[in-house]
Structures are given as C-alpha cells and as structure tokens.
Design a protein around this nucleic acid. Structure first.
Length: 126
DNA sequence: CATCGAACCAACC
DNA sequence: GGTTGGTTCGATG
C-alpha cells in the first residue's frame, strides 16, 4: 500500500517531500551508538527501501539529523551522499561506538524500528 | 557465505 | 511507458 497523507481533509498519495519529512523525523529516534536499517523505516512508512535512501540523501543537515545511522539489512554501511562519503559515515559510526567487523556493523547495534514500534505484534513463544 | 534477479514506490526522462 | 535510486528478500551454488 502506498503511503497516504492527510491534507485539507483529503487523503492523497504522499509526495516525495512528505516522505523526506517522515524519514528525517523517524531517524531522530535512533540514539547515538545504535543504527537502524532502510528496510525497517520502509516497512514502517509503507514505501520502498530505496525510496528511504533517496529521502535520506535529501537531508539538509547531516550530523544534526543523523542520516548516518541507517545501514543495510545485512549490516553493510550503505551509501552516504553527504561530505566525506561512505567513508566518513563509517568514521562517524565508529566514533559513536558502533562496532564494525570488516564492512559490516555488529548486529548488536542494529535496532529494528518496525518491531520496536509494534509493527508485527508477534509474541515470543518459549 | 556470495551471487543473482525480481520487487519495491515516487520521481524523472 | 521505461529507468532510476544511500535496498530487500528468497532462491541458488
């Protein structure tokens, strides 16, 4: 289902700018030393993971809005269009305390926002 | 584990 | 209509 937004009492399909706003808001929930994935944000919003990436690339204030705390689902860093490129992204994550094994982040630092916000409502079955 | 290919959603041509 | 992204997932070796 595509992302819908409410405007003037009408429901309409989200525009790219709406998605950018939503994504940039959501990633501010990710604390320093933790990262999340494109996919979890995408599920949360109902858009494609690649679109999330594009939205992050629109970030006007890198560092203050932590677009660098979003990585790929397999742990690889992903892209970074801000100054310094992906290499700088790595450096930032390291400084924030995220462990990197080769080109992958340690899974212990990855949080899934979709599950965290009750996206699937699954109960543990011991 | 690594690679492959199809699906993804809004924008752009 | 087809391509394009800071991607994903399942299938395959």
């Amino acid at each position: 289902m595509p992302l819908l937004v409410l405007e003037g009492g009408r429901v309409r399909r989200a525009r790219f700018d709406d998605i950018v706003e939503a994504v940039l808001t959501i990633i501010q929930l990710v604390p320093s030393g933790m990262v999340t994935t494109y996919g979890s944000i995408a599920k949360l919003l109902g858009v494609s993971p690649r679109l999330v990436g594009k939205a992050l690339a629109m970030n006007k204030k890198p560092i203050v809005i932590p677009c660098h705390r979003v990585v790929m689902s397999d742990g690889r860093i992903g892209g970074y269009s801000g100054p310094g490129g992906p290499e700088f992204k790595r450096a930032l994550l390291t400084v924030e305390g995220v462990k990197l094994c080769g080109d992958r982040v340690d899974k212990g630092h990855v949080i899934d926002l979709y599950q965290l916000l009750g996206g699937d409502q699954q109960i543990n079955t011991p």
